[in-house]
Amino acid sequence: MANYYDIDDILAEEEFVPVVFHNAVNGVKIDESTERGYVEQGSKAELPFWLARELHLRHAVSMRVPACFNQKTRLEMQADAACVDLRSRCPYFYEFGCKLAPLCDKTIGLLLSYSFRIRYKEVLYKAHTIAFGAATKFLALLTKEETNLYEAAQSSMVAFKRWRMGGPRLQRASILGRKRKATE
């Protein structure tokens, strides 16, 4: 299990999964649009992953494959994985996929490794070559994990340049945030 306190892990588990209820449930309002305080057997709903997993393990619901791993996405991935806008589909595509694969569809694993292989190359390549202005368009396609990789690649490049050129060793602590103009 990932770190209990990991912010990204918590956010990844909030992604929604479509489920079908095997049992009726009393005293809960899954759908906020209805006033009913219960769920009927066989009804469909979308639950966040943390809830769906526990209910799935207790055989109270069964999971369906979420939209971001459906056939349409797979076809797009096969066409050109590097150009697919994964952020709007699921910002935690890889983490969510890893959690989901053993529970609902084992083939998600293949999809993940295939897309990561192609996209990783693109991310590293762009991180070193792309001009700052053009980067925003490319960054808008990346998942959280890929953005982290992109930033790591860039900061290592900056560190290398600074090491080669020399420069002040001591700097303002980054923890204080970007420098703001003093209000006069």
């Binding site: 005293g27 809960v28 219960y38 943390w50 809830l51």
Partner: peptide, 21 residues
């Protein structure tokens, strides 16, 4: 394992989730 049990389970899981957050 009736409907009430599963309702209680969902509330319990939500509590644990909020605690983790």
């Amino acid at each position: 394992r009736n409907a009430d049990h599963h309702g209680a389970l969902i509330h319990h899981l939500a509590l644990i989730r909020n605690k983790r957050c």
